[in-house]
Design a protein around this nucleic acid. Structure first.
Lengths: 199, 199, 199, 199
DNA sequence: ATTTAATCGAGACGGTACGTCGTGTCTTACA
DNA sequence: TGTAAGACACGACGTACCGTCTCGATTAAAT
């Protein structure tokens, strides 16, 4: 009665994910349709409905496939000992990704879908956000242990303080996302608004 | 040929905005339809299409109307001299609003619509975000002039640093939004992650 | 409360009738609309609704105006003494009219409207059909009195027998309407299907 | 891409035709709508649009279905040897049908639709009118060969002469359709207006 | 190697909503 | 008061997709 994954056509799966990712870039998320994906992928609609519960889930998988399936077990944020520099490196990479038009629209789409779909949000949290957050936490914990961060600093708050402004500016289109912005952000977050970047 | 605003029915306008706001709260944004709004408002669909370009635009106006048309000219953030306390007050109020189920769904809806509709984003920026941002800038500028903030601090970055984490956590459902969170956020942003909140 | 014909704008009336007649020829009856007539005539919709009860009524008046208001009191069918020749003359003229593309579409439109609108049908009967029928009856009565028709012939049946085949062929597009057809029709109707046209 | 007749749902087809026929009788042709037919038939609108090009085409098929798909190959007009009697029989049956309110409105509707839709007119001619006309021609040809009709009589004109007056009177509501009318019509058409019906 | 059952492409189906057009009524401003 | 203009509530249009369903035709496993 239930779908048997063993029988699943890998060809169709790939075609669907590719079609979904391409289409969302071409026509935008609002005009993305299951019918459109099926037609583009040369696939019956049922094949999509059989394996994914919603349009957002397809998009999410397309995204995951592109990302290489999320961070591997051995992935880690750079740790040169210079926390500020490392954070600037990581955030700059994020900024570059967000500025890449190839990723911008699909990422926005996924984000907005998550807002309305609790199940999808859970999958997103578990498979993409949580692993990344753990990596961030790990790097900050190391810095804290090295005495580079306040001993009573809440690490989740710290992550919010670094990534929140960036992601919020991106989502709201609140201004350009540049490396300069990232640098100032990291310096100010580390040293506080009360005093400028040191030296 | 084009609609003449002078002849516009205020009754219908109000009914539409009310219906839109109520419905988005009841059925959610995904199931919100122009047809539904028109039916609920006792209005012809054409009357909506005549005056608003999109579903999001209606929702935006509904939002504006609820907000009392945006901040008045004489509006200002509190200034007791204690910057930290004032920020905590303001951000706590924001948190309360974001936690109010009456506002949560419509706000999310508006935000996701903005992500995909550039024109709507511009209207949002101009009529809601920009005025608020100016108020924030004003308060921070006063603090800077009082020597409570670094002289070279970029005010827009500062605003991002304070509101960004909050809004991002809300949008991504990254965790509970509490007054404690706000307090820690303000203290850490002001003093930096390198040192804890001052005794 | 009711419209006062004295105040009626003759300019608008003419513009409306002209617009209606022109439009029905251009876009066909199915796509003819009150809005279209009003726009073409440079007239408010209300002006049409004030003076005509229906789209068909406008068309009917447009038709009447074109026809010069129906047959005058002194109008008569030709009477040269040769009944067959006279009928052929009259029916040939009718055929020419029906073949004129300028009249064809409006006439069809009026006819189909009459089928569904009893009030319009009455107006048509009274103002166009009945007067014409009386003229036909008059000519045939003269022929009967001259001994050219059977003494017990029902004149209305006779009219049907002459005009019915013609109009039915036109309405049903049952074949070309030619003068030859008319000639054969008149001869056969007069002499009967049992014997051919005399010598 | 195009509809595949093999997969067509016979149930839906029947429901649509029945609904169309019933509705045209209940609300009249002017108020007949695709939406109404779909609702009555418990069918999606698309299912109608998929298989029929227009409202008139649906009505036409409904009509055809009711008629049993047109005359069969072995159908024929009665031939007792008495031409006048046979014609009176057939035309009387036609008159009865035209007077049946169950058929009157749909027939009028179909006729008016034919007037404006050339494609539909062709379908009508080919599938309903032409087969019937051939039957009529056959009966008249037999009469001609039996010497009961003029040798040079054009059979199509003859058919017009017999059915034209009847159908025209019906369409124009030119008077009551009775068996007496039919009898007089047949006699006069056969013998001509110049002489009465033979003793 | 053959069976056999799930998956596949295709696409019809009952629905919902879309955005547009036209209806007939109403209101406003002008002549 | 009649008029041009046009907003209004309403109903239908014809289209796009939804998610479900059936239909042969692969196709890959278990015989």
């Amino acid at each position: 009665m239930t779908a048997n994954p063993a029988r699943r056509s890998e060809t169709s799966r790939q075609a669907i994910l590719t079609a979904a990712f391409d289409l969302v870039g071409e026509v935008g998320y609002a005009k993305l349709s299951i019918e459109g994906i099926a037609a583009r992928a040369g696939v019956g609609k049922q094949t999509i409905y059989r394996w994914w519960p919603s349009k957002g889930a397809v998009l999410f998988d397309a995204f995951l496939a592109l990302m290489g399936g999320g961070p591997g077990d051995d992935a880690a944020l750079p740790d040169t000992g210079d926390l500020a520099a490392d954070l600037k490196t990581v955030l700059s990479a994020t900024v570059d990704e967000l500025n890449d038009p190839r990723f911008d629209e699909p990422m926005r789409a996924l984000n907005t879908e998550i807002v309305h779909d609790a199940e999808l949000a859970a999958a997103y949290a578990e498979r993409l956000d949580l692993p990344m957050r753990e990596l961030k936490r790990k790097r900050l914990r190391a810095a804290k242990e090295a005495g580079q961060l306040a001993a009573d600093l809440d690490l989740d708050l710290a992550i919010d303080l670094l990534w929140g402004p960036l992601l919020n500016r991106w989502m709201q289109r609140g201004g350009p996302l540049t490396h300069e912005y990232v640098n100032a952000l990291v310096d100010t977050a580390l040293n506080g608004m009360r005093q400028g970047a040191p030296g």
